[in-house]
Design a protein around this nucleic acid. Structure first.
Lengths: 177, 177
DNA sequence: GAAATATGAATGAACG
DNA sequence: CGTTCATTCATATTTC
C-alpha cells in the first residue's frame, strides 16, 4: 500500500459556539472547573456539537497553561531580516486591526449522525491576519557556545518562579483569539 | 539567491544564517531546548535577523516532528523506515473523503463576545473528518450553573467543589472515553 | 498564475 | 499543573 495513512481519530475541534461558551466560562474567573462543572459544561456544549468531558477538561487546562503568554510583540516583520528584499512590495495596509483569527469549520453534526455537506466554494476568502511577533531583543552577543556545545544542559532553572508559571512558546497570544 | 518575500509580513522566514545556526544546534543532539536556551539562541539569532523566541521554539518543534515522518510520499517508500507496527487503523467508514479543504471560513464572530447566531447561517464545513470519542453524558438537566447563561453573580450555586486533585481526564481510566 | 510542496504557526491531547 | 508531542492549518516558496 505504501503510505500508511492511519486515518482515524481526529482531534476534537470546538465549534464557534462551543468556543464562545468555553471562553466565556473561562473568563468568568474559574480557572479549573470542578468535576461537576466540567460535566455541566460538557452537557451544555454537547448541544452544540460532539464533545466529551475530557475535551473540556483539556481545553481548560490548555487554556490556563497557555494564558500566561510571555512573549512581547512588536517589531516589524519583513523589514530587515537579511539583505534581501530590496523592492518591498509595499502592500496597502488598509486593514488596521482585523477581527479575530480563523474560524474553525463548524461541526454541524446532527444527532442522527448526519453530517452536512460541503459547499465547495472556490471563492477564496482571504483572511488577512496581521499581528505577528518579533523579538526586538538585540542583546549582547553571548558566546552561544554554551548552547552549541551543550547537548542537554538543562541548567538548574527548575522553576523560574514559584508564583505562576512560565509559558511563552507553544502558543502565545491570550484569549480573544 | 532565492529568497523572495512577495509580501512582507506574515510568517517569519529564517535567514540562511539563522537556519544554519538552528540546524547546527539541532544537530547537537538536543531535541527541544529549554527556555533558557531558547532565549540564548534567540538572542544570537536576532543578530542575524528579526526573530522571536517563539519562532525558535516552533522551529525546533517542527524540526523534530518533521524528522520523524515526512509528509511527502510518492513512489519509493519504505526505505529505511522500520515501521513494524501493523496498527493500521483502517476506519470502518470508508467515506473518509480526502479532498482539499481549502474552503475558507465564512463565519464571523464579533469581538464583543455576544451570543451570535453562528452556524445558523450557511454553515460550510469542509471537514468530514471530525468524529472523536464521545462521552456518555447523562441527561442531568440542571440549570447549567451561573456561568453559561447566567452572567449574574456567581455567589454560591451550591457546591462546585474547589480543590480536588482528581485527574481522571488525564489518564482516562476512571472515565470511559 | 495555479498547483504542489515546504515550512512556520495554532491547538488539542498526552506525558511527567 | 507544566511541558512536550502530534496533527492540522496557513502561508511562503518552488514548480509547472
Amino acid at each position: 500500500f505504501g503510505h500508511k495513512m492511519t486515518g482515524g481519530r481526529q482531534r476534537w475541534t470546538p465549534t464557534p459556539v462551543q468556543l464562545q461558551i468555553l471562553e466565556r466560562i473561562f473568563d468568568q474567573g474559574i480557572g479549573t472547573p470542578s468535576k461537576q462543572k466540567i460535566k455541566d459544561i460538557t452537557e451544555e456544549l454537547s448541544q452544540h456539537g460532539q464533545i466529551a468531558e475530557q475535551n473540556v477538561y483539556n481545553w481548560f487546562q490548555n487554556r490556563r497553561a497557555r494564558s500566561k503568554r510571555k512573549q512581547h510583540g512588536g517589531g516589524g516583520v519583513g523589514s530587515s531580516s537579511n539583505n534581501n528584499n530590496g523592492e518591498s512590495e509595499v502592500e496597502a495596509e488598509t486593514e488596521t486591526v482585523n477581527e479575530k483569527r480563523k474560524m474553525p469549520e463548524s461541526l454541524l453534526v446532527f444527532p442522527d449522525g448526519n453530517k452536512n455537506a460541503i459547499g465547495t466554494t472556490s471563492a477564496t476568502s482571504p483572511r488577512p491576519e496581521d499581528l505577528y511577533f518579533q523579538s526586538p531583543v538585540m542583546s549582547s552577543d553571548l558566546d552561544l557556545l554554551g548552547v552549541l556545545s551543550n547537548p542537554r544542559d538543562e541548567h538548574f532553572v527548575g522553576k523560574m518562579g514559584l508564583s505562576e508559571s512560565y509559558n511563552m512558546y507553544d502558543h502565545v497570544e491570550d484569549y480573544g483569539m
